[in-house]
Design a protein around this nucleic acid. Structure first.
Length: 401
DNA sequence: CGAGATTCATGTGAAGTATACCTTTAGGCTTAA
DNA sequence: AAGCCTAAAGGTATACTTCACATGAATCTCGTA
């Protein structure tokens, strides 16, 4: 039997999964475990919508994977359903994730996305921003309705743009004759509100809600709940769920992470044509997730960013480099540009690119002063060895080296 | 020997430039009555 | 005459450049004990 047969066989038999969708991150379960309190709180705040009243703006904190998005969407869709049952269609529920790079990292794009979600359309660029606002107003204000806008990862948006975007949005209410806008902001940084314009803070923070992270036991409950649907009988080895929960609990109780772990572990086991998901698969799953995330980021980076990264990788690990400095990176980068016939950018720009890599966690850079030898960034490549190799392959392929 | 002054290599902010799109508008051409 | 197409004019976003100034500790300088 050759390898292909083996691969196909492992898929043709009944796999380990009964229903894999349940473990995917965009799946919305019917029952949301350990979040009843928060759901009720959100519901209470949103309830006035049923009487057609405007509701307070809501602000929600909580670490990633603490069920914020899930809860809000769930309550949102319930309330939309409810209003429909009451014979109204005067509620629009719009969910926007400000972090998805393609969609929204400028005021313009968020607005465009908003309009798009509401059934309108705007070009990707070109209009004066205030024109876009007036289009938005036109679109909304043609009848009496309530617009409930959820801005997920709002801290990202504010960081990239500025907080008067939110201010404008809240102020829009005074321009609207018929409809009303309510905002729900979701953020995973607790400190986010602190450095906000006071006016914005007071208008956005009319109601606040904190989602505490799940602890390991709660994570276990969530995992069990879903694993029952996702896997067949007796597929999971004893302690698998506990281990997933423990891993995720270590990462500030990230439920999404826990589910991913379980799913990937299942996939790996299946690929091995194992009959069971055993504990070791969780470790490999953990590595794989880490790696895939990084490699995805690297692959989708623009060309110049990749060139810079290539420069860093060329220096990384060389004996004569105790630590890497901006100037070294710039030289290596120039060399690579010349070799690959790419345009060479200024050092100023490279400085910004390095700062962005730092944000992404691909490198760790800190500004140090070397006295007479001036000031510079001390750069460390933060990729695990096995990732480095893969990353290099990806870069070479994409840069055509 | 110690306090300031210097200095280096870059960080960082502001403002400007080039390019790629977008809308609006006006003029010219086609078309149908 | 109405309708349609096209090109020019006037905007914006994005990625980058240019210019100018800010930094902060090792090192130098020089007065003093």
């Amino acid at each position: 039997m050759d390898n292909l047969d083996k691969i196909f066989n492992s898929f043709s038999g009944k796999g380990l999964f009964k229903n894999k969708v349940v473990l995917q991150s965009n799946y919305t379960p019917e029952i949301i475990t350990h979040r009843t309190e928060q759901m009720e709180a959100v519901a209470t705040i949103l309830a006035p919508i049923l009487r057609g009243d405007k509701v307070s703006n809501l602000f929600i904190y909580g670490k990633t994977g603490s069920g914020k998005t899930l809860t809000v969407r769930h309550v949102g869709s319930k309330i939309v359903e409810k209003t429909k049952n009451l014979g109204n269609d005067n509620l629009k529920f719009v969910y926007i994730n400000c972090k998805m790079k393609k969609i929204s990292d400028t005021e313009y794009r968020i607005l465009a996305e908003l309009i798009h979600e509401l059934g309108g359309s705007v070009p990707a660029t070109g209009l004066p921003t205030d024109q876009v606002y007036s289009r938005f107003v036109d679109l909304i204000d043609n009848k009496k309705q309530i617009i409930l806008i959820v801005l997920d990862e709002i801290d990202q948006a504010v960081k990239k743009i500025s907080d008067n975007f939110i201010y404008t949005l809240t102020r829009l209410n005074s321009e609207l004759k018929n409809s009303q806008i309510s905002l729900i902001g979701i953020s995973n940084s607790i400190t986010f509100m602190d450095n906000l314009d006071p006016r914005v803070r007071s208008s956005l923070g009319e109601e606040e809600l904190v989602f505490p992270p799940y602890n390991a036991l709660q994570l276990q409950d969530i995992l069990k709940e879903r694993a029952d649907n996702a896997f067949g009988e007796n597929i999971l080895e004893e302690g698998v769920i506990a281990k997933c929960a423990a891993f995720a609990a270590r990462e500030h109780g990230d439920a999404r992470r826990a589910l991913d772990l379980l799913r990937v572990a299942g996939e790996l086991a299946e690929r091995d044509s194992s009959k069971k998901v055993s504990l070791v698969y969780i470790d490999s799953a953990n590595n794989k997730i880490e790696r895939d995330k990084m490699l995805d980021i690297i692959e989708s980076e623009p060309k110049q960013f990749q060139l810079v990264l290539m420069g860093i990788m060329a220096l990384d690990g060389k004996k004569d480099y105790e630590s890497i400095f901006t100037g070294d990176v710039y030289n290596a980068y120039q060399e690579i540009c010349n070799k690959t016939k790419n345009e060479v950018l200024t050092q100023r720009r490279i400085s910004d690119i390095l700062a962005e890599f730092d944000m992404l966690g691909i490198i760790n850079a800190r500004v140090i002063s070397k006295g007479r030898q001036g000031r510079t960034r001390e750069i460390k490549l933060m990729l695990a060895p096995n990732i480095k190799i893969k990353a290099r392959e990806i870069l070479e392929k994409s840069l055509d080296i």
